[in-house]
Simulated scan of single mutants.
Amino acid sequence: MTAAGADTDATFGERHRLVNVAYRLLGSLTEAEDAVQEAYARWYALPPGRRREVRAPGAWLTTVTGRICLDLLGSARARRERYVGAWLPEPLPGPLSAGLPAGLPEPLSDRAGSADLADLIVLDESVAMAFLVVLESMTPAERVAFVLHDVFRYSFAEIAAVLDRTPAACKQLASSARRRVGAAPAPATPTARADTVRRVKEAWQSRDIAALVAVLDPAAVMTADGGGLVGTVLRPVAGGALIAQYMLAVADRAPGMELLECPVNGAPGLVARRDGVVLTVAAFDVADGRVTGIWVVRNPEKLRPWAR
């Protein structure tokens, strides 16, 4: 590698990539921004001479961001044990702008907010809600090794610097994480997903329980996240018939609710709003023309990117 020096311009272009890494590691836009911001703070806290010695500022920032995320994942486990109901990742809206923030990254509170931050996330299968939920089942070290290697193609030697383990140990962690992911079925095509989600929307709006049951897999599971701030089921609802009954009960109690088809984490989803305010975001997993999984986020703190 050639020396990159300490020129601040060498770090500006890294923020986009770092936010993408941190979101996949943490499942939270706010925590991802905090991790990246802390990494930059540590970079600029280095004496100028020390920064000039860093041959690859991007690699340095990635290592520090990864270590910060590793610490956050460890503390998050304890916090989520106290969380009211199920914890789900923060859902992402579709891309709202193509540009990246210019200049030195600013604190989140000084920018337009997490809605702008959501624009930085590259939407692909690695941010699908089903995939992020599986990542939650991994240990922090497994998650870091798996995401950095399998998603971002970092070498195990580079990952070893993040986890402070040998490359061989990091390879074992990624392999263990891969077994948790398992042999996932091929994802439905975007058109098939959109058609299935539209059928859910139409059945919900028409209060047609037979049509709703028909589009739900008999073994489907719905998980909802209200964070104790809004009402929702505290445990997953299993079975297409029970999910259909629950959804229609919600429809009966939600006069004036508007249901919209919107991208959620890069895949067709549904957004419920009243008087222009987004109250619920739902992501779907689809197989063979039926819904197999529904993730419903109602926690208002996780819906800030949807304020636009």
Rank of each mutant, 00 (worst) to 15 (best):
L148Y: 06
A130G: 14
A194L: 14
F146N: 08
A183R: 13
E158T: 05
A130I: 00
L117V: 13
E125Y: 00
T189K: 08
P187S: 10
D116F: 12
A184S: 13
S175T: 11
L135R: 14
L132I: 09
A194K: 14
A145G: 06
A184N: 12
P140T: 03
S176R: 12
V200Q: 15
V133F: 10
P140E: 06
A188G: 15
A157R: 11
P140D: 09
E136A: 08
E125W: 00
Y154N: 07
R179L: 12
T139F: 00
T189H: 06
P167G: 09
V200P: 03
A157C: 01
A177G: 14
G182R: 09
L117I: 11
L173D: 10
H149F: 00
D124N: 14
D119Q: 08
A160Y: 03
E158W: 04
A168K: 02
R153I: 00
R199I: 11
P190Y: 02
A186H: 04
V127R: 10
S175V: 02
A169R: 11
V200N: 13
L120M: 06
F131D: 12
A145D: 08
R199A: 15
H149I: 01
T166D: 11
K171A: 15
R199D: 10
E125G: 10
K171V: 01
R193T: 09
K171P: 00
T189Y: 01
D164S: 13
A118R: 06
V144C: 08
M129E: 11
F156P: 02
A128I: 00
A118C: 06
L173H: 05
R153N: 09
L173F: 03
A157K: 05
D116P: 00
K201P: 00
V122D: 11
V134S: 08
V133T: 12
A168M: 03
A161D: 07
A157N: 05
M138L: 14
R165K: 13
K171W: 01
V127C: 07
A157E: 13
V122C: 03
R165M: 10
A169D: 13
D116A: 12
T196V: 10
P140A: 07
P190A: 06
T166M: 04
R180F: 00
F146R: 09
V127W: 13
S175A: 15
L173M: 09
L163V: 01
L163I: 01
R153H: 11
L148Q: 08
D119G: 04
S126D: 11
A192S: 15
V144Q: 11
L148G: 02
P185N: 11
F131Q: 15
R193G: 14
S137P: 01
T166E: 09
I159F: 05
R178K: 14
A177W: 01
A177C: 06
A145R: 08
A168V: 04
S137F: 05
H149D: 07
V127H: 09
E136G: 04
P167W: 09
L132S: 05
A161H: 10
R179A: 13
T139M: 11
R193W: 08
E125D: 14
A161W: 09
Q172P: 00
A141F: 00
V144H: 05
F146G: 09
V127P: 05
S137W: 07
S155K: 04
T139H: 07
K201S: 12
S155M: 06
A128D: 15
A169V: 06
L117M: 06
D195L: 14
P190S: 11
S155T: 12
K171F: 03
A168D: 05
P187F: 00
R178H: 10
D124K: 08
P187Q: 07
